[in-house]
Simulated scan of single mutants.
Amino acid sequence: MKVYWNALYQDDIRKVAEYDLPWEKMKDSSILISGATGLIGSFFVDVLMYRNKWFDMNCKVYAMGRNEQKAKNRFAYCFENPLFSFFSHDINLPITGQWDNIDYVVHLASNTHPKAYSTDPIGTITTNIIGVKNMLDFSVKYYAKRFAFASSNEIYGENRGDQEFFDENYCGYIDCNTMRAGYPESKRCGEALCQAYQHQKGLDIVIPRLTRSYGPTMLESDTKAISQFIKKAVQGEDIVLKSEGNQYYSYTYVADAVSGLLIVLLKGKSGEAYNIADISSDIRLKDLAGILANISGKEVVFELPDVVEKAGYSKATKARLDGSKIKELGWQPLYDIKTGLERTVDILKRL
């Protein structure tokens, strides 16, 4: 069974689609979403199409990605819907063709897992800089009402030891003279480009900053530690921990990540960045592994990472985000870390 038809997943979609938001802003509108077949993008599309079906929102969804067949498989339930259009495109190239004006642009496309950082560092950087510029140019050309750039907790760098939580003004240390710096530094540059376009071109932008996100829409190729743990739990295998597991991070279940994106898109102040984070999903890596081992009835075992894996790992040992700013907009997560992990494993086991 495909993830979309799973009853728990449908429940997640419904809850976000019924979230207390100014949905009227999206009625009779249009939205372009890059990275539409990814972990966050696919759930985002599902929520909008649910609103179209059950709330007569009449929002035209333009889903952008590189693989049309992948999109056809993922969005088979709505691929022929007149309110859905898939646009096959590599965002490192300018967006061509003639378009009607687009109301909202949400840029989600990015390499977001360690193996990609180490095996394709050039693609990681260009997607986060050239790709962002192409999306911004498109937004200016077609008079977008608002542009949302999905940034990352990685822009904060390493904790300097002076704060327990990173608020939106924190700036930690990044050694820019390393291959692994390509992802956080290019995300920082992407944010700077957004601010430049707001100032110089008058584009209305907001910047939702995502934590380490997970959920049943994760890609098979995802090599993040949490994704590897989840795969092992689904397969009924021991959870493999490739460090002492003392890293202390914020995580977000995909449904909560998308509700956060929506609240920033529809209620965020122009030019501002917002952490999508809640303390109920802050956890040390070894404890996260333990939860998944308990879910699967297995154990946590330790194994050294290979060279490629180690090169892509973040050096940050503590990255807990302060979510108080987005909560002023009215955002509250639906799930804590334990519940989110349980739902993820339950859904994936039934596929």
Rank of each mutant, 00 (worst) to 15 (best):
C176E: 11
C176S: 08
N177D: 12
N177E: 13
T178C: 01
T178V: 08
T178W: 11
T178F: 07
R180T: 03
R180L: 12
A181G: 00
A181I: 00
A181E: 08
G182V: 00
G182Y: 03
Y183R: 05
Y183T: 06
Y183S: 05
Y183W: 14
S186M: 06
S186Q: 04
S186A: 14
K187E: 11
K187I: 09
K187S: 10
K187T: 13
R188D: 06
R188Y: 10
R188P: 01
R188N: 06
R188E: 05
C189Y: 11
C189I: 13
C189S: 11
C189L: 15
C189F: 09
G190S: 10
G190Q: 12
G190I: 10
G190L: 13
G190N: 02
E191P: 12
E191I: 10
E191Q: 07
E191S: 07
A192M: 15
A192K: 11
A192G: 06
L193Q: 06
C194S: 02
C194R: 03
C194E: 03
C194P: 01
Q195H: 13
Q195E: 11
A196S: 10
A196F: 09
A196M: 11
A196G: 10
Y197R: 09
Y197Q: 12
Y197K: 07
Y197G: 03
Q198H: 10
Q198E: 14
Q198D: 08
Q198C: 10
H199I: 04
H199F: 12
H199A: 15
Q200R: 15
K201L: 04
K201S: 14
G202M: 03
L203K: 05
L203Y: 05
L203G: 09
D204E: 15
D204F: 02
D204Y: 04
D204R: 05
I205W: 09
I205G: 04
I205A: 11
I205E: 00
I205H: 14
I205Q: 08
I205D: 05
I205R: 11
V206R: 06
V206D: 05
V206G: 04
I207Q: 14
I207V: 15
P208E: 12
P208Y: 15
P208F: 07
R209Y: 02
R209K: 09
L210V: 05
L210G: 03
L210S: 04
T211E: 00
T211N: 03
T211G: 09
R212V: 03
S213H: 00
S213V: 15
S213T: 15
S213P: 06
Y214C: 07
Y214E: 01
G215I: 04
P216A: 13
P216H: 02
M218T: 11
M218D: 12
L219Y: 00
L219N: 03
L219H: 01
L219I: 02
L219C: 05
E220A: 01
E220V: 04
E220D: 08
E220S: 06
S221N: 11
D222L: 14
D222E: 03
T223N: 14
T223C: 04
T223Y: 01
T223H: 03
T223R: 12
K224P: 00
K224F: 00
A225K: 02
A225S: 09
I226H: 12
I226T: 08
S227P: 07
S227T: 04
S227A: 15
S227V: 07
Q228I: 02
Q228N: 09
Q228V: 06
F229Q: 07
F229P: 04
I230T: 13
I230N: 07
I230H: 04
I230A: 11
I230Q: 01
I230W: 10
I230S: 00
